[in-house]
Design a protein around this nucleic acid. Structure first.
Length: 411
DNA sequence: TCTGGGGTCCTAGGACCC
DNA sequence: TCTGGGGTCCTAGGACCC
């Protein structure tokens, strides 16, 4: 039996998940069948479209656009807030369902999985998986079936929703080549413009173009997308272990532009709390700390520093972040700010020197706080600097609604 | 109160080393 | 005796994905 790959893609994931949750709760209306979107909170300046129904799509609404622009396109648009804990639950249920069919399941994103399959009737199996997900979990998926991951992914993006597509080698010319070159995985906005300027408009054009010219104009990505256009991809299923992350970052858009360094420092502290807690939770330390922010004009700034001794300590992360920030900040208003930890190293591999003892004490304090917070909630311990301030003391994690999900009987 | 948040990978250029 | 040539490390910045 030949080894094949499935790419399972949830149709309009966030919106579908919200829809199936509402139906589970007993609502009559299926928001998939009306013009509706999932969007961030406008008042917190996070009002962009995260997902849309097919009905909303018909009005020309696209993911990533500001909510106000979408409302102009469709005045009757129904808007629902994002709910990440729901999405994680749905994503995990889908994962468990797919694991029934293969040991090799790769989470490519919250709503996409690759599955390695060896089966006599792969297409039949793909339909079975698709239908079982719909029946058991209440949302629809597209399944792409192909000889490699790239083609499986391209296949699942063909016609939506609730469909199975194959994209075998012999189907590349008829099913994939006619598509706009921008549809190809790894051809984004910038590359598409470059390709168009070279007279390349379809995936076929790209597949038949000169690889040296592509390399010249686009660089190594040019070689990659040329391979993709010809259906070549040798990558295997990669099962991400917990703690395999290469970087940990959190950021937030502020409710108002901030000009006061003391307030900015409080946000830096709140974000340090989050990235610190996260990196300690996976037993790692970071050699590189990076701060980034957006000013009132949406211009981005970034500054980073490699440390001699890796850290996972909240106070240390905070101190370095403030230092990095003040080194590049020219007193412009700050709209958004974030911290990212890179060059992660396993705690087990790190031998503290005797000079580090003081730091190790601080670290054990951090760990104690982590333990208490995970038991009693984040708000049980709060740094004094936040008292009487209208700034959350720990920030990060994609603006969730606070609603606690009680889904024991579902998913 | 128009433009989120989480990631990965690649490259250019400067500093520094032998 | 007109300024080599390897190499590594670091930072900034850009491109892509969802």
């Amino acid at each position: 039996m030949k080894k094949l790959y499935f790419h399972v893609d949830v149709n309009n994931a966030f919106l579908s998940w919200e829809a199936s949750y509402r139906i589970f709760k007993g609502e009559k209306e299926d928001i998939r069948n009306i013009p509706s979107v999932i969007a961030g909170d406008v008042k917190s300046r996070k009002g962009i479209i995260l997902a849309k129904s097919n009905e909303a799509k018909r009005y020309g609404i696209i993911t990533g656009e500001p909510l106000y622009a979408a409302m102009k396109k469709c005045e009757s648009l129904k808007v629902f807030p994002s709910n990440y804990s729901l999405y994680k639950k749905c994503s995990n249920s889908l994962y468990l369902e797919l694991k029934k069919y293969s040991n090799k399941v790769e989470a490519f994103s919250i709503d996409e999985y690759f599955v390695e399959i060896s089966d006599k009737n792969p297409v039949q199996l793909a339909y079975k998986i698709k239908d079982e997900i719909k029946e058991k979990l209440g949302f629809t998926v597209n399944v792409g079936v192909a000889e490699n991951k790239l083609l499986a992914k391209m296949a699942s993006e063909l016609k939506k929703p609730d469909m199975v597509h194959t994209l075998f080698k012999e189907e590349i010319k008829t099913k994939m080549w006619p598509l706009d070159v921008g549809e190809l995985f790894m051809v984004g906005r910038k590359t598409k413009v470059k390709l168009n300027n070279m007279g390349i408009f379809t995936i076929k054009d790209l597949a038949l173009s000169d690889i040296d010219v592509l390399n010249n104009k686009i660089g190594s990505n040019g070689i990659l997308i040329h391979r993709y256009a010809n259906g070549c991809d040798l990558s295997q299923i990669s099962i991400k272990d917990h703690g395999k992350e290469k970087s940990i970052g959190n950021s937030t858009t502020l409710k108002y532009d901030i000009f006061d360094i003391n307030d900015i420092k409080l946000y830096i502290l709140a974000i340090s709390e989050m990235v610190g807690t996260r990196i300690r939770a996976i037993n790692k330390r970071a050699f590189t700390i990076s701060i980034h922010y957006k000013d009132t004009k949406m211009l981005r700034y970034r500054h980073q520093k490699k440390l001699i001794r890796p850290t996972s300590n909240t106070t240390e992360i905070y101190d370095y972040s403030v230092k990095l920030f003040t080194e590049i900040w020219q007193s412009e208003g700050v709209r958004a700010i974030g911290i990212s930890l890179n060059d992660l190293t396993d705690l087990d591999n790190y031998q503290p020197s005797i000079f580090d003892l003081e730091h190790e004490n601080i670290n054990s304090l951090d760990e104690t706080i982590d333990r208490i917070r995970s038991k009693y909630g984040n708000d049980i311990i709060k740094r004094a600097s936040f008292i009487d301030k209208d700034i959350p003391h720990i920030i990060g994690g994609s603006g969730d609604t606070k609603e606690q999900l009680k889904l024991k009987s579902w998913l």
